[in-house]
Design a binder for these strands. Structure first.
Length: 267
DNA sequence: GTCCAGGATCGGA
DNA sequence: TCCGATCATGGA
């Protein structure tokens, strides 16, 4: 199994980053990472070295998932000096990255996310996987396919902690299962056209669409504003969003600010 | 008991 | 176009 030396990579940071909900800390300090129907275990060896445990044929998949083809050093170094708060925040998340997650999994997960804490989202997503996902090795389950979720009933979904979001999940799963929304084809769309497609899903507003664009389609100009980012805008940017001025770096900077505000500043 | 969480939707102004 | 109420659920 490959051992990689990675300067800007840290699973504890990614685990807490709020972009993925199926990373699981293990008792030995490793992380089990599930995505779609794939699974890997990543063990810290110290000195920025990480051991990846996955099937040999999955190497390209995880390379892409963790965005290992991108050198993040310039992404930290190029933050303008005049952006003092952003630089201060970035100094606290050296291992942060923007993942490339499965679109359907990301879409459903963030529909579930509305007005939930990150631990609550993890629980909810995990229950959906256990109920509708294909069993994998070591007691884990794949993320459900659109077909499986679309075949559920609203009442059934509610028993997994979805609450009022149950019809949203069902409606969106049906859009995908019936081919009325082609998430693979969406990868070729412009940012605006992609957002339009996502907003057509029940339970998807600008914020959830923004998360899917950033965390699944790697649209780095997308900077979703949740309650934490709204606090940052009010506290540090005089209530005026800085994201449009940041262009193609907006999503990356947003993720730095989110991590910093939630895990370092807190309150 | 209250308050809050990676919000969206609806009705009414 | 904008605003307020409302929507389940779990944890602090």
């Amino acid at each position: 199994m490959p051992i990689l030396q990675l300067e800007h990579f840290d699973l504890s940071t990614l685990y807490a980053s709020g972009q993925c909900f199926r990373m699981k800390p293990q008792p030995d300090g490793a992380y089990r990472v599930l995505a779609g129907s794939k699974m890997t275990t990543v063990t810290p060896l110290g000195e920025h070295r990480w051991q990846f445990d996955f099937a040999p044929e999955d190497a390209p998949y995880w390379q892409r998932y963790f965005d290992l083809g991108t050198d993040y050093a310039p992404l930290f170094a190029e933050i303008p000096a005049e952006e003092a708060y952003l630089r201060q925040a970035a100094a606290c998340c050296e291992g942060l990255r923007i993942l490339r997650q499965e679109p359907f999994e990301t879409l459903i997960s963030f529909i579930c996310s509305q007005r939930k804490s990150i631990p609550a989202i993890r629980d909810c997503v995990e229950r959906l996987c256990a109920a509708y996902g294909t069993p994998m090795a070591q007691g884990e389950f794949a993320f459900p396919t659109a077909q499986r979720l679309a075949a559920a009933t609203e009442a059934e979904l509610r028993t997994y902690g979805l609450g009022y979001r149950a019809p949203y999940v069902l409606g969106t799963a049906r859009l995908v299962a019936e081919g009325r929304l082609d998430l693979s084809a969406c990868a070729a769309l412009s940012d605006a056209a992609l957002q339009e497609q996502l907003l057509a899903c029940p339970g998807v507003g600008v914020k959830v669409a923004g998360c899917v664009m950033l965390f699944a389609y790697h649209r780095l100009a997308s900077a979703p504003v949740d309650v934490w980012i709204q606090k940052v805008i009010e506290e540090e940017y005089h209530g005026k969003t800085p994201f449009p001025a940041w262009g193609g770096r907006a999503g990356w900077y947003q993720q730095i600010l989110f991590y910093y505000r939630q895990h370092v500043v807190r309150q």
